[in-house]
Amino acid sequence: MKHFYKYLAFALLAVSCDKDEFRPPDIGLNYFPLRTGYYQTYNVNETVYSEVAAPENRVYQLRVEVTDSFPNTGEAGYTYVVHRSKRASENVAWQDLDTWQVRENDRELVVTEGNRPFVKLTFPVRKGNAWNGNKFNNLDADEYEIQALDESFTAGGTTFEQALVVNQENNEDLIVYQDKREEVYARNVGLIYKQTTQLRYCTSDDCLGQQKIKSGIIYKQEIIAYGVR
């Protein structure tokens, strides 16, 4: 009988190992969860600078919702249709804004903003991973890098314990052109924070180095709600 229990123990161990062996690897897909009906709501604050007008500050809410999906052509994975809408405050109705697409496979996640695709993440996610965010568009190469992985991050008053920080650009030139961009994703939530500062400064002899803004934008987006409708 003792031999029976011995063999039973080995059998259970083997079954356990087989389950672990065939368990799909965690490559980080849940940092950008996608399913029809999934939505996220954000508070947005942006200031737009122009050479011909005073700075304009805009405060509003943005809602992003997955409305459809279809298999990718010629590769694994799916493409998701994402509808965006905005409103001035929570007391008014949502207004249609535009529609984006998100293409996902086991190598990368590409978000087409309008007609311009950007590689937002590459898989498997690892701290220090770097890639060309403009791989599929006609802009100059732009290196994105994962600076933090599975660390806590607070956005919209909520602390997310497993967050991924992508540094898209960190050019702090205060003479000609400042370009700082960062996006933060949380497991099972998606994008929770986005900040963009892109400012062109006056470079004429009478204002060079004075940080006089000619044009550009300061943009901050923080999540306040998410779920499935």
Rank of each mutant, 00 (worst) to 15 (best):
M1H: 09
Y5M: 03
Y5P: 01
Y5Q: 04
Y7M: 13
Y7G: 04
A9T: 13
L12P: 02
L12Y: 05
A14P: 01
S16Q: 09
D18K: 02
K19F: 08
K19E: 05
D20C: 06
D20S: 06
D20E: 06
E21L: 09
D26H: 04
G28F: 01
L29Q: 09
L29V: 06
N30S: 12
P33L: 00
T36C: 01
Y38M: 06
Y38V: 05
Q40F: 00
T41N: 12
T41G: 01
N43L: 12
V44S: 06
N45Y: 09
E46H: 04
Y49E: 14
Y49A: 15
E51Y: 08
V52H: 11
A53D: 11
P55L: 07
N57G: 01
Y60K: 05
Q61N: 11
V64N: 02
V66G: 07
V66K: 01
F70D: 06
F70W: 03
T73V: 09
T73C: 00
G74D: 05
R84D: 06
S89E: 06
S89D: 14
W94R: 09
Q95V: 12
D96M: 09
D96W: 14
L97D: 07
L97R: 03
T99V: 15
T99S: 10
Q101V: 09
N105E: 00
D106G: 13
E108P: 14
L109V: 04
T112P: 13
G114L: 03
N115M: 10
N115L: 11
K120E: 09
V125R: 08
V125S: 07
G133F: 03
N134T: 08
F136V: 06
N137D: 03
N138E: 12
A141T: 14
E145N: 14
D150Q: 12
D150E: 12
E151K: 13
S152G: 08
T154I: 03
E161Y: 08
Q162G: 07
N167A: 07
N170E: 14
E172S: 15
Y177K: 14
D179C: 10
K180P: 04
K180C: 10
K180S: 08
Y185P: 02
N188S: 12
N188E: 09
G190H: 05
G190S: 12
I192S: 01
K194A: 11
T196Y: 09
Q198M: 10
L199A: 07
L199T: 07
R200T: 11
S204A: 08
C207K: 15
Q210A: 14
K214R: 13
I217T: 10
I218R: 13
I218T: 12
K220T: 14
I224G: 08
A225K: 02
Y226M: 01
G227S: 01
V228R: 05
